[in-house]
Write a protein that binds this DNA or RNA. Structure first.
Lengths: 96, 96
DNA sequence: CGGCATCCTACGCGATACTG
DNA sequence: CAGTATCGCGTAGGATGCCG
């Protein structure tokens, strides 16, 4: 029997990634630090408002942090998403 | 340089999973066929409306199909999500 | 049981304009 | 460059009621 309550690890991860931008943003940061304008350019179509909000939320969740130089850097917790990123990319390549 | 256009596999997968319910629903079906009311019970909090819409959308995308007996069965394309499901679950267990 | 139809609200997000 | 502020809209999704 599966669970969907808030304690379920799948549920929590699903909530974390339940918007189109978060994973795309984290994917970018997995390749290295980025400035605001870098992200704005690679995340084609995102508004400054949304980018600001996502960065703030992910910073609060300690998935990333802002460096002294003003770039956004992924944390250990954020790096943990690498296997998810890989699995999603492979799925897309194979089935979509 | 990363891409965010519609041809990017990551982008397509991210869009597919960009709501809280889809992955939870697919996770359930990965363990076996389910009836409407089974899903309704395990996906705590989902409305019949949303469940109906998600099922319809995922059926159109051929992630699942409805069997003669009325149960929902995952397709090969849907089964391909298993590695993503595993990665997400492990991430939740480890970091969330 | 397995839905479909309606209604209504919340909010995610883009567009735009402005500031340090 | 790196945001913040405001507005306005589309739509995802819950609540409810009805039906074969």
């Amino acid at each position: 029997m599966t669970t969907t309550d808030k304690e379920c690890p799948m549920h929590k991860t699903a909530l974390l990634l339940s918007d189109p931008w978060t994973m795309l943003l984290m994917r970018d940061l997995l390749t290295g630090p980025r400035r605001f304008c870098d992200l704005e350019r690679s995340l084609v179509g995102i508004s400054t408002r949304t980018l600001t909000l996502k960065l703030k939320k992910l910073e609060e969740e300690r998935m990333l942090k802002k460096s002294k130089e003003g770039t956004y850097v992924i944390t250990r917790k954020g790096k943990g998403l690498a296997p998810v990123e890989r699995a999603m990319r492979r799925y897309g390549e194979k089935y979509l």
